[in-house]
Amino acid sequence: MIIILYAVLLIISIFATVFLDSFFCALIGCTTTFLILALVYREENKYVTLPLFTMIFIILDVVYHYATGTNMLIALVCLLLLELIKKIFSLYSGLVLYIVQGVIFYLYYTLIRVIPQLFTIGSVGYVTKDVLLPSIWKTIFSLIIVIIVNILTAKVRNRGNNSKFQLK
């Protein structure tokens, strides 16, 4: 029963992610799947998150007519970079982490504009101000979402802790 429920949730989440990605791509020109991955990914759930997002990235490759594996490659490179920086500098919260995340998001949004055509027509796209400047506001948008989600999750966690007896 639980397995069926998980399967249904999985299917719904795949459809929802594809829908949201296409929706925000058309609305503000910003893909949201990497943002969701960055929000959701944790060490504890990597064996669930990574396969799920692998499927989603493959679906997005088909929908956006990229070579299969493009989205996955770029997203995982950026995610790996983020995890390495977090590990090397022991960043788990705070302003510095947001700055690092901002840099990684900027890298992702720039790469997703220029890399896909490397695998379809064999050459990297032009890196001009038309690519670099929009990536800035997409990064800002993503960071705002990350900060809001972090604040909300922190509040939910703290509310849960209010009923606990704490020794000071």
Binding site: E43, A67, T68, G69, M72, L73, L76, L80, E83, F119
Partner: peptide
């Protein structure tokens, strides 16, 4: 834990490269 996490991501990265090669 971190090393394991990094290895898993690397593993999926290799998978993505394989997918790209197969797609080509």
């Amino acid at each position: 834990i971190m090393d394991r996490g990094g290895v898993v991501i690397l593993g999926f990265l290799v998978l993505s490269v394989i997918l790209l090669l197969l797609d080509s």
